[in-house]
Structures are given as C-alpha cells and as structure tokens.
Design a binder for these strands. Sequence first.
RNA 1: GCCCUCGUGGUGAAAUUGGUAGACACAAAGGACUUAAAAUCCUUGCCCAUUUGGGAGUGCCAGUUCGAGUCUGGCCGAGGGCACCA
Length: 846
Amino acid sequence: MERYNIKDVEKKWQNIWSSKKTDASTLDKKRKKFYCLEMFPYPSGKIHMGHVRNYTIGDALARYKRLQGFNVLHPMGWDSFGLPAENAARENNLHPKDWTKKNIEAMKRQLKLLGLSLDWDREISTCDPEYYKHQQEFFIELFKKKLVYKKDTYVNWDPAEQTVLANEQVIDGKGWRSGVAVERKKLSQWFFNIKKFSQDLLNALEKLKNWPDKVKLMQKNWIGKSFGCEINFQIDKKNKKEKIKVFTTRPDTIFGASFIALSIDHPIAKNFENNQDFIKFKLECSKSGTTEEALAVAEKIGFNTNLFAIHPFKEKIKLPIYIANFVLMDYGTGAIFGCPAHDQRDLDFANKYKLNVLPVVRPNEVDPKDFKINNEAYTEDGILFNSEFLNNLKVGKAIEKAIDVIAKKKLGEKKITFRLKDWGVSRQRYWGCPIPIVYNNKGEALPVKKKDLPILLPDDVDLNVKGNPLEKHPKWKYTKLSSGEKVIRETDTLDTFVDSSWYFLRFCSPKHKKYGYEIKDINYWMPVDQYIGGVEHAILHLLYSRFFMRALAFKNKNFGYTEPFESLFTQGMVCHETYKNEKGQWLYPDEIEKNSEGYYVTKNDKKKVAVGPSESMSKSKKNTIDPEEMINMYGADSIRWFMLSDSPPERDVQWSQEGVSAAFKFIQKIWKLNNEILNKKDTSSNSSDVVLKKAVNKTVYNVTKNLDNFQYNVVIANIHEIYNLFHDHVVNNKTSSKTLKNEWEKITMLLIPLTPHLAHECCEKVNKKFYWPKYDPKMLKEENCTIVIQVDGRKRGVLEMPVNSIEKSIVIKSKEIENVAKHLENSSIIKNVYIKNKLINFITKK
RNA sequence: GCCCUCGUGGUGAAAUUGGUAGACACAAAGGACUUAAAAUCCUUGCCCAUUUGGGAGUGCCAGUUCGAGUCUGGCCGAGGGCACCA
C-alpha cells in the first residue's frame, strides 16, 4: 500500500497553494466577503505554540468559509516596532532593522510550514516606512481634528539609564536593567483624546453581539462610567472668593463632610511649592513605590494647608483643606470632600488626623442613637439622618434630591465621570514610528507638511547611548523646514499600540502608495468578520482600535466605520507541566525522561525531577515546546489536529506528547482507510447503505453547526465517530463500494479546514473540486427513536419506537418490559409524564 | 477590597439548553494476533451482586420540579480582571 509520507505531501501542497496563489483574495463585489483576521505577531524570531493555536483556529475558519463560497480575506503581517529590537540590537550588535528583518523571514518560513491559507501578497510590516508614513498622516489628521494634544505627565524614570521605563520594566520599584530606584519624572508627552469617545465606546459595546461578554464587561469597567455631581466649595478667605470644585458620587453624604482633600497636582497645591513642609510631604509621597498596587496599599497621608472651605449648606462649618496622597488628579476634578463615616479611605484619613466623623446614613433597622462608626465606614444602603432636608430618605432618593438642591442653588451640577484616561502615545525610544511634529524657536509644535512625509527613522544611530538615541542624534534632530526655518524634531516615537490600531485597514489596501487605506477597499472588506486572538488584549489593543476608527470617522463623511471587529473570539493559552531539578532550576521538557519506575529524571545525570503544575508556556519557566520540532516529527496536520482536539478553543489547552502522537496515528488511519475505500471492489448495494448515508448526513450537519459555534473539539469528536463507523463498514463489508466512495468523499471535504494537506491529498484522487458538503434536513429525521422509561424518575428501561408514537402505545409497550413491570408491581400509577419521542415517566403510589 | 468566570471519571472533555450523565479521545488494566517485540484490533472502566440487575454519583448544603450537570439561594475551592476612581 502507498505510504503516507507527511513531509512530501505537506511540501507538495504548500508549493501548490503558494504557486497557484489559491489564498489570494481580490475585491469582487459580486461575491460575499469574509474577513478573517488573527492578531498579527511580534516578530521575536520564532513562532511559539500560542501562535500555532491562534493561527490554526483562524485558518480552520478561513478554509471553511472559502469552501462555503465566501470571498475570504485572510492576511498576515508583523507588529514589528518595539523595544525588544533595541535590546537585541545592543546585545548582538545588530541593527534593529536587520534583527527584525531576519526574524520576520524566520517566522514566515515557520508559519508556512503550518500550511496556513494566508494571502502573503498582502503582507505588511509596521516598521516599514510604507506602513508608518500613513500612520504619520493619520497623526497629523488627528492633530488637526484636535484629537491629539500635549500635556505634562509622570513617567517611570530610570536615572542610571537616563530613560523612561514601561510599567512592566519596573520591578519592585527598581529599573529591570539598572536595578536603580525608579523616579517619578514629569515629561511633556503626546496624548490621544480617547476620553472624548468614552460614552460612545461604552454604548457601542451593546451592539457587539458577537463579542465575548467577558471582554465587553472588562471594557465597560475600564471605561468606568459613574454618575454624581460637582460641588463648589468656597475657600474661607477674607477678600478672595476662590472656589474648589469637587466631584462626588455620594452628594447625599454632604452633611457628613469633615474635610476637603486635594491632589498633589491640584492647581491650589502650586501655591505651596516653596513651602518646606510641603516639599517634605511630597518627598514622603514619592517614597511609597510606583506600582499601582503599592499606591493602593500605602498609608493615607496629608498636608494641612491651614486653609478652610465653607460647607455649602452650613456656613458656620469650616472644613480643613488638606493635600492628600490618595486623591488622583486625573479623575474627577482632582479634589474631594471627605465623608469619613461612609468612605473607608476618608475614615482612615480622618482617624489619622483626628478629624470629625459624623454618620449621616444608618441601616434601616438601627436606631440613630445606637449607630456608631469606629474603624469601618458604613457604605451600604440606608436611611439619611443628621442631614436636614435629606433626613429619612433612602440613599438613592437622597442622591437625587441632593443633586437637585445643589443645582437649584447653583452650588454645583449633575455630572457624569469616566475613569478612562487619555491615551499617552509618546515613547522615548528609537524603534518606533517617529511623531511627525517639529518645534520652531518659539517652542510651538507644528505638524509636518504632508509633502515632507514620511519622516524616516535615521539608520545611523548609536543605541549604546544613555537615553533616547533620537534625542542624541543632532543631525536628525535639528532640521529645516522647506521655508528654511530652523526647527527641532520631536524625538519621541509612537506607542506600538498605535501601529496595531489600524493594521486591519491596511490589509484591505496593503500596497496603496498614496493612502493608508482606500475607501473602495474598506467599503468592501470592512469590518473584520471574525477577529481571533488572545484575551490579554481584551482591553488596550481592542479599545484603542475601536477608538482609532472613531477618530478617523470624526469629521470625515467618507469614513463610515466605528467598529472594526464584527465578531471577536479569544482563544485560551497553551500550557505545559513545569520541571525543576534538585537545585530548583527550571528544566526544558527535552532535558528530562521517564525512568523504568515511571518517574521523571534528568537525561544527563538521572537525577530526580520535581514536576510542577501545568502553566502557560513561557521561556522563563522553560516549559516550552518548539513548534517546528513538532512539525518535523509529526507533520503540520497532526499539530493542527491536536491543537483543535483536546480542549474547547476558548479554554487553555494542555500540551501533551501523547495527544500529538494520537493525532499522528489518527492521520495515518484516515489515510489507510481512504486507500482501502478507493480500492474497494464493487459489491452490490446493501441494506446498510442507508445507515451510512444517514450517519454521514448527520455528521455534515454536526460538523457545520459545531464549526459555526467554534466548538472545534466537538468537530474532532464528530470526525472520530464517523471514522469509526466507516471503519466498521469497510472491515465488515456492510456497504456497497459506490456508497462508501460517495460518502467518504464528503468526509474528506470536512477535513480540509482541519488537516488541509491530508484532506487535499485524499480528495485529489476522487474529485479535483473542493466543496463544503450539504446536509439534507429531511434525512436528519429518524424513523425510530429511543424512549426512556422511568418509574418514579428512575430509568428502568428503554424502548425503540417509531417517531411520534402515541402515548397509549408507549404505555402498553413499556409495561411489557420485564424490568419495568417489576417496578410497577404492587403499586398503582397515579399519572404518567410523557415527553414526545423522549421519555415516559410513571408516577406511582405504593 | 470590588467585579467576572469556572468546578463533571485517573486525565482532556461531551451532553440536542430541564429529559438515558460521561459521547469522543488520552492514560491504565486484561485479552487477541505474533517465536517475540512494535504496530494493530477487542474488552473493561465507582460501589454491591455470579448474570439479568440494583445503588451512589456532575465541588458542598438546601430549594423548585414527575425529573436538575443544566434553574434559584447559601457556602467552599480555583482562575481572571480592576485596584486609593471619591
């Protein structure tokens, strides 16, 4: 028999697909489109199992949709700007450009080994000037629409490296490379005004019907809408009438106010810049660490300004004004009124500084006289007291009334606040898209003229300098406008999240010289019909992309899109056991083996290995498996099959050698059975033919349904089942060869999305045309059905009956079953519950 | 601290959305073929009973129902998100 040579077959089909460009897509308005997109990778140099899973899921879908007749767009590109290139460049003395290029080539070759049906003609790379020049245009477009602005903000500053660190580069308050304590430093940086779209980004979540609820909820919380009001407090100064505006969601607790707290960055705090005590206080605040968690746990401290604010309803009450470390400048107004009785933070603060604690909300059933606040604030619902016109109202009503009165007396107004912050896009880095801005000698920021774009990254940089290499590159930094005016370039580059916020548009017009996208292309292809990627991008990347679409659509009649991704699927991670040697060092899976007693030992010195829990594959824990090695051993189809078979795609999957090896064996079995069927001598038609036909029809139905629902693991089970049936029919000569061949052909078509090389090889011999088999709904209907017979809710037998049999006949037949009769003995039937074609339950009385 | 999701055999998991729990697969044990091994195929799968069969059973405790893995309430455990958001 012809042997199935995985390597030859896979190579053969990959060559055919590539030379015939079977996966290239062209705009064709007569055909229905399907845009299938997986999150593009960062070109680290090697694909990992996470990529394999992501792209296998996407490819199965793309191939399935193609077979169904859709015009499928399935592109791939590279998220190729970013810090690792700079680090690698320093370590290996290789230019980021060359390092990136080399990595892209290596990963592209690996992706091709997987047999993905990608349109490589549309390949893009974000570090390519042909890509980022359009991004610079978008930046200027946004600048002109006033969606981009500059403001001072704090960054993690590494004084040793003279550079800005990303949050994840700060470990225990120290720079990851230098180990030196990180400082908070104020820098003037560029921001995208994503806040402007807060309400719309929130509202539109509801329309994203095919997004996981989890992701929508995460975005909703991230946007964080809250209802409340602003209240103006007058500062108690003799001549001046200064005001402090505070934001609160609990205006009902206004009568419990006992202090005002301002953020360190509040304008009023500026008045104390030269005050020695305030300087000390600021220093104290900056000590508490920079991570958000550390800030959250830090003790609440304040600086007493010795100023007082007048209570808006009780002029006699003067509230001390503090500057406090727990008040954030970029939320609300940067100022709060403290109501210690009903806010834990305020209570902690009040206890520390011996401030008044007056409860104004009490639990329903508790007498006001007995209600005391000690160390725990009361934040539940309740009844207002000590609160004049709010007395005896419930919290909800009291909030409404408080806002009402405050508005009427012009003390403030109803206000909705979002916690979503504007997107800081400045990065003090070399390997990113240059921000197309220059500064004239007055320091004004001017957008670069379109004709002067792109602003190319200079190649001749010294990456070993401390700080931003662009900053230290005078030839590039100091330049002239076409008018001859001397200007300084913006040396910051853009956050790489900007690169990935519109790449899906570029895929529609990947080669267009003049524009980042062409409207006729996106009118056809957009939105992305199915986006697939890791849940780790649930917030930032997806929210930024949603913002970017709105920013482009803003004041632009030609661009009618706001939501880029019609459907979203987030796949789980690939996990593997972890191993440690006796010294507690991590070991790679191929450094260990099983000994004769079934224990894991190290390969070289046979020492005991501690097996840890299965965790998502990561280089640091060395629990990675190299996809290419696996492809070499088992073939791409086996890896794809295994990736889809073991767990539902949205859940984590355990990598297992046995699993892959089982996939490999099954592929061999399919091939063997395929040949047996094709070589089968003609036998006359048999009564079992209809059994097989029906089963195949059912399989087509199930596989189609399960593919539509992303239940790939169940699809695999469907295929196993039908294989087992075919195997039985072949071995036992149950079916005519004609039926066998006809029906088997359909199964090979079903395999195309899953194991494309094997499937094409099988199909080739019987039918050059590939198609998605259709099922006959009439054939799904069974003539007989199995009815479960219960006595008092317990199963006592089953009955094969024609579909839609009447209850009476089922009752009679049931009682004929020995075991049923036995259980009905000595008791009388009170009633029976009959569920058509499913079950009958006799309820008895002893 | 707040919010969300998930708990089903030794393992990964199915279950027509309230109707035969454990499909399909991995692992294990036993068997067949073989001089032997590999490969392949078959059987078994918790407790009681020799078999027909009976019982328990989907994290735990209650509830609704003729009937609950599925619905409701409470508890326990695991994972994830946010984190001084006023």
